[in-house]
């Protein structure tokens, strides 16, 4: 039993990991076909996993409704929303447009889904403003540097800010876009590169831990 539950998954992980790693150095068509095959398998597994997720979603909300758990009314919207999109999709055969006319799926996509998604993204603007009000308080020298950089970038990104800069500091000969250009090209890129390198190395080590079976959380109980 241990052989099936522990050793076989570990061997599969090791074998596929080493093969995929090796394929980077082997330019053969066979190597490319292998990678393509792995990608296709991943797609197939993702498709079935989505069904699993959907079943889990319906199951948990169904129980909430039957048990009248707090907030069970919202669980009804899960089913309503699902039917609201799936039924028109089936009726329209998955097509948002039929010639020049919008199908019911197209209508729901355009006037419901797009609007709701855009609204959620727009909520970020409000949160960013209130967060900025809280966050950019100068309590230390580092906070002052952060504040100064943020001040220049926020000001210089929009025409009104550029006009304000030109009015107040135009005599220096430096435009705010030049300052922002320097900030974005030098300190920001340097910081980003440093973080990228650290993340890449951490990623390599994590991947090696999984390939060589040192990290085995994903497998469940030994």
């Amino acid at each position: 039993m241990i052989f099936i539950k522990k050793h076989i998954p570990l061997f599969i992980c090791f074998f596929v990991g080493v093969l995929t790693l090796g394929s980077y150095y082997v330019p053969n068509a066979g190597s490319e076909n292998y990678i393509e095959m792995m990608n296709k398998w991943e797609n197939i597994v993702a498709g079935f996993a989505f069904l699993l997720g959907l079943m889990s979603l319906f199951y948990s909300h169904f129980h909430k409704i039957t048990r009248r758990a707090p907030g069970w009314g919202y669980s009804l919207f899960v089913y309503a929303g699902f039917l609201l999109v799936v039924v028109p999709a089936i009726v329209s055969n998955g097509q948002p447009m039929k010639g020049p006319d919008m199908t019911s799926l197209g209508w729901i996509y355009r006037f419901v889904f797009t609007s709701l998604s855009g609204t959620m993204f727009a909520v970020l603007a409000f949160y960013i403003v209130s967060t900025a009000y809280r966050a950019f308080r100068i309590k230390s020298p580092q906070a002052f540097v952060l504040f100064a950089a943020a001040f220049m970038v926020i000001l210089g990104r929009v025409p009104l800010g550029q006009m304000m800069w030109d009015g107040a500091l135009g005599w220096t000969g430096y435009q705010v876009t030049d300052v922002i250009e320097w900030l974005m090209s030098v300190p920001v890129v340097a910081g980003r590169r440093g973080i990228m390198i650290g993340i890449a190395i951490g990623g390599i080590v994590t991947a090696l831990k999984i390939i060589f079976g040192i990290e085995r959380q994903y497998m469940g109980k030994d």
Binding site: Y133, F151, I154, L155, V158, P159, L160, G161
Partner: peptide
């Protein structure tokens, strides 16, 4: 533009 100016005003004010 106006949103950016609001953020700057709020930061400076605080």
């Amino acid at each position: 533009s106006l949103a950016h100016v609001l953020v700057i005003v709020l930061i400076l004010t605080s």
